[in-house]
């Protein structure tokens, strides 16, 4: 019997070790973010000034907003690679309608939302009706959107001379810039939707076991369609913010306004969203986005070359992917 005792003992020990490892893997991001802040507070000049904090938040807002929608799609077990296409088309549409056609700003935004819904529908049609693997389908729709954007803008960047758009961006309700409001609002809405609505429950169910969800009567196709529409909308929103900041329409190949698929992936994975769907919390994503933004900002203040940041970002992506894989095996 001594044998089985030691076995049990060993099992309990490995169990403890596993729990500890899991705890570490689940919360390392919070610890890392705090440590990073402390480090930069001492080493990077002006890191802890109000201006810089606001700057950091503003610079994280665009990737952050895109990541919110991307995460919701990822939770359904779908990968949305149409980010760059949607960003380009939304930005060009915004510039064309607002600047060239003279559509008033609120109406422009409303029409953009309609366009986003259409873009989400195109991707979901390819995925659901075409039964094409999501990553490829969205790569395809992204190509179509890019083509449209290039054409609408006639291959040019459209300069926006009407002031309302940028003025709206520079508003500071309660002293906080609009982009930060939008960022937090997106995550708040996302949080409530995912945790406190039926749709949220359905999104998690669809992602964790598609066929079980379908068999238990969840309208899985509709869930995926809605998730894609949400992602298209948030991506368009981010595109408008980027357009307003630059007062220029984004042009594919020249600048994509700081949004690229790899950034979004990195943030989502660092935030613990599993690529297999169904696992992850959106609020952690916000932390991940902030983490990346703080890292970038601090390095900049310390005078590091921008290229170093690119390498670090790549390493962060690889690291996030490895951590995700390790977590899944526990």
């Amino acid at each position: 019997m001594a044998n089985s005792d030691t076995l049990e003992y060993r099992n309990r020990r490995t169990d403890d070790a596993q729990r500890l490892l899991r705890l570490a893997l689940d919360n390392w991001l919070y610890a890392a973010t705090i440590l990073l802040c402390i480090f930069f507070a001492f080493r990077a000049p002006n890191f802890l000034t109000v201006d810089n904090v606001i700057n950091t938040l503003v610079s994280s807002s665009i990737t952050g907003i895109v990541t919110a929608g991307f995460t919701i799609v990822l939770l359904t077990g779908t990968i949305d690679a149409s980010t760059s296409g949607i960003t380009a088309l939304a930005s060009v549409l915004c510039a064309v309608m607002f600047q060239q056609w003279g559509v008033p700003l609120p109406l422009t935004l409303l029409l953009l939302m309609v366009a986003s819904i259409l873009m989400g529908l195109v991707s979901s049609f390819l995925i659901i009706e075409g039964r094409i693997y999501s990553l490829i389908a969205t790569l395809g729709s992204s190509g179509v959107f890019l083509g449209l954007s290039v054409g609408l803008a006639a291959g040019q960047q459209i300069a926006i001379t009407k002031p309302e758009l940028q003025n709206a961006l520079f508003e500071r309700p309660l002293g906080i810039p609009v982009s930060i409001w939008v960022l937090f609002l997106c995550y708040l809405l996302g949080y409530v939707m995912l945790n406190h609505t039926r749709l949220g429950a359905h999104i998690y169910a669809t992602g964790s076991n598609y066929s079980a969800a379908r068999l238990s009567g969840i309208p899985v196709k509709r869930v995926i369609r809605i998730a894609l529409i949400i992602a298209a909308t948030t991506t368009s929103l981010a595109a408008v913010l980027a357009t307003a900041r630059a007062n220029l329409s984004l042009l594919y190949g020249v600048t994509i306004g700081g949004v690229n698929l790899a950034d979004v992936f990195t943030a989502a994975l660092l935030g613990g969203i599993s690529l297999r769907g169904g696992v992850g919390k959106i609020e952690r994503n916000l932390v991940a986005v902030l983490f990346l933004s703080i890292l970038s900002n601090g390095l900049q203040l310390m005078g590091t070359a921008p290229a170093v940041w690119l390498v670090i970002k790549g390493l962060a992506f690889v690291g996030a992917v490895i951590i995700d894989a390790v977590r899944q095996r526990l």
Binding site: A307, V308, W309, V311, G314, V318, D324
Partner: peptide, 26 residues
């Protein structure tokens, strides 16, 4: 590490891009 190739390569690609830029800029 048993990561699906799709993601593994996307990650390494980002790193390579950063490397390329740093070599060029220096």
């Amino acid at each position: 590490v048993k990561i699906p190739s799709l993601i593994a390569t996307l990650a390494l690609g980002t790193l390579c891009y950063g490397l390329a830029i740093s070599v060029i800029q220096s």
